[in-house]
Design a protein around this nucleic acid. Structure first.
Length: 237
DNA sequence: GTCCAGGGCCGTT
DNA sequence: AACGGCCATGGA
């Protein structure tokens, strides 16, 4: 059986169930009367090439300092912001990137995320891409998880899994994204797509962390019969 | 000690 | 267009 995006999605969701991303503490934002979407945007930036465990440390420090807010990010000194996010690495770059994003939304939309997200998807995407420090994956993760907009996110894991499971070749970000969105939009209605893309990417991350690592753990992998990756380290098959 | 993690920018070829 | 160096911390 040759895998395609829809089959992979069905296999993963049957095995692991709904993930209900983005991982976030909504209670904090209720108590604090703050916008959870900004925590998601900050988390997306901080997790660039960085383990989520380290990002959680930074997010916790930002909460304790009461800094998960566009205006407050813009108010404090950049050195102090760097200190708060040191645990998630590249802290000088990422402090600048958090500032770049905050400044953009503050200046163009008076910090109003409703106004920012309530526009054409591609308009927002191009705008995000124009901000230094935001590339395609970061932009799409913000659109999908903070904006609840229907975009399929392609990351390192998606590419790795696509190659190993022979779903598609080693091709560009856009081509993988177009392929997945094209296939899935044939099977799901417009209203379902945001949820499907949301769950799918979360499941890909989970599967890649648990099994399809750089050095894979194949013994307990549920899809190994479709895998063309040669080095099954712990595989007694 | 080594490897790796939910990328992106910038300069060179 | 494609590639390499760089950015940095902390867990396995």
């Amino acid at each position: 059986m040759k895998l395609n995006p829809e089959k992979l999605f069905n296999i993963l969701i049957k095995q692991f169930g709904d993930q209900n991303w983005w991982p976030i503490d909504f209670e904090y934002h209720k108590k604090n009367n703050s916008d959870p979407r900004f925590e998601i945007m900050a988390g997306v930036l901080l997790t660039q090439n960085t383990s989520w465990l380290n990002v959680e440390k930074s997010l916790l420090k930002l909460k304790i300092a009461n800094l998960l807010d566009i205006k407050k990010i813009l108010k404090i000194k950049i050195e102090d912001l760097q200190d708060e996010i040191r645990a998630s690495g590249y802290f000088k770059q990422k402090a600048k990137r958090l500032t770049n994003l905050s400044l953009h939304i503050q200046e163009k939309y008076n910090g109003n995320l409703d106004v920012f997200f309530n526009r054409n998807l591609h308009t927002i995407r191009n705008e995000l891409l124009s901000i230094n420090g935001i590339g395609q994956e970061t932009a799409d993760s913000i659109l999908l998880y903070a904006g609840n907009l229907p975009v399929f996110v392609v990351d390192k894991y998606t590419k790795r899994i696509c190659e190993r499971l022979a779903i598609c070749e080693k091709i560009s970000y856009e081509k993988i994204q177009n392929y997945f969105e094209h296939e899935l939009s044939k099977k799901y209605s417009k209203d379902e797509l945001s949820k499907v893309y949301n769950e799918f990417h979360a499941l890909i991350v989970l599967f890649a962390k648990n099994h399809c690592r750089k050095k894979p753990i194949c013994k307990t992998c549920i899809i190994k019969k479709n895998c063309k990756f040669k080095i099954h380290h712990d595989n007694k098959l």
